[in-house]
C-alpha cells in the first residue's frame, strides 16, 4: 500500500486502516498520549487542526484531533486522548504493540499559510491544548516565519496541565511568551491563579498584525472572544477549533451540524468572522 491515508477511502468511506500503537505515555490521570504508526507506505499528510476517526474494533469509532505537527511526523503521529467515553475508555486500556483503526485526516485545519509574518496568540483551555499543540509545534519548527508568539494556557488544576515538559521547553526557548494559569491551585503551585481570561492583560498585542487561535471547552469561547475582540484583533484573524460529535467525518451523518454547517467538512477550525452570526456555533 502506498499513498496517503485519505486516499484509502476510495473503497469505502467507512473503512479504517490499521495503525499500530508505538507508544503510550500517561500525561494526567485522564489523558494519555498515543503514538501511532500507519502501515508502511501510508502517510497521514495532515494539516494542524485536522482530526481522524479512531476505531477500537468491537467498541466503536470516535473523532480525535491530531496532536502532533506535520513538521515532526516521522512516519508516526500522536493523539492526546482523554478518557471520556466507550472508545476512548477502551483505547486507554490498550498498550504499545496493539492495533487500532484510523480514517482521515478530516476537516479543515488552520490556514497556516495565512499566519506567516504575523504575531500569533494561542489561547488553549484545558484539553484544547491537544489540537493546538500540532499548530504550536509547527510554528515553532519554522519559527522565523512568524512574528511574536504568545501562548496563554489555562487549566482547572495543576494536575490537569498537559505536556508539562513541553511547556517548560517553550518557556526556555526565549522566543515564546508563555503564561499559564489554573482555576484552583494546589499547595505546590506558585504560578497564576484564575480563569484563562485573567492572562490576557499580560499579552502585549499589536492587534492589526495578530492572529489569535483558541480551543477549549464550550463554555470558554464566549469569554475568550470578548478578550480577543476587545484587544482589537479583527474577527477574520481569530480562529476557533470546535468540538462536535463528528460520527462519520465525511459530511453525511448529521451529528456535527452547526445550523447548516457540517463541522467535519467546513471545520473544525473556523474564523470568528465565519461563524459570528451562526447561532448554534457558540
Amino acid at each position: 500500500m502506498s499513498g496517503t491515508l485519505i486516499e484509502t477511502l476510495g473503497e469505502s468511506l467507512y473503512l479504517p486502516q490499521t495503525a499500530r500503537i508505538r507508544d503510550v505515555r500517561p500525561i494526567t490521570a485522564m489523558e494519555k498520549l498515543f503514538t501511532l504508526e500507519l502501515p508502511s507506505g501510508l502517510t497521514l499528510d495532515h494539516n494542524p487542526g485536522q482530526f481522524i476517526e479512531l476505531s477500537v474494533l468491537g467498541v466503536g469509532e470516535a473523532p480525535i484531533s491530531i496532536s502532533s505537527s506535520p513538521s515532526r511526523s516521522n512516519g508516526t503521529f500522536e493523539l492526546c486522548v482523554r478518557r471520556a467515553g466507550d472508545v476512548t475508555g477502551a483505547l486507554h486500556r490498550m498498550a504499545a504493540g496493539q492495533v487500532v483503526g484510523v480514517r482521515g485526516p478530516f476537516g479543515r485545519g488552520f490556514p497556516i499559510e495565512r499566519f506567516r509574518g504575523k504575531d500569533i496568540l494561542f489561547a488553549p483551555g484545558g484539553l484544547g491544548l491537544a489540537p493546538l499543540r500540532s499548530l504550536i509545534n509547527q510554528v515553532l519548527d519554522e519559527r522565523g516565519k512568524y512574528g511574536r508568539v504568545t501562548i496563554l494556557y489555562g487549566a482547572k488544576h495543576p494536575s490537569e496541565l498537559l505536556f508539562k515538559d513541553e511547556l517548560a521547553a517553550w518557556k526556555e526557548r526565549g522566543d515564546v511568551e508563555l503564561h499559564v494559569t489554573v482555576d484552583r491551585p494546589d499547595e505546590n503551585w506558585t504560578g497564576n491563579v484564575g480563569v484563562i481570561t485573567t492572562l490576557f492583560a499580560r499579552a502585549q498585542v499589536y492587534a492589526r498584525n495578530t492572529v489569535a487561535v483558541t480551543c477549549g471547552p464550550p463554555v470558554m469561547y464566549r469569554f475568550v472572544l470578548m478578550e480577543l475582540v476587545g484587544k482589537g484583533i479583527p474577527d477574520g484573524n481569530i480562529y476557533l477549533s470546535f468540538e462536535r460529535r463528528m460520527k462519520c467525518g465525511v459530511g453525511k451523518c448529521g451529528h456535527c451540524q452547526i445550523n447548516h454547517i457540517y463541522t467535519c467538512q467546513s471545520g473544525p477550525v473556523f474564523s470568528y468572522a465565519e461563524i459570528k452570526g451562526v447561532q448554534e456555533a457558540l
Partner: peptide, 11 residues
C-alpha cells in the same frame, strides 16, 4: 443526538 463525549449537548 448532538451530545459530545464530555457531556455537552449542543442542541
Amino acid at each position: 443526538f448532538a451530545t459530545i463525549a464530555g457531556g455537552h449537548n449542543f442542541r
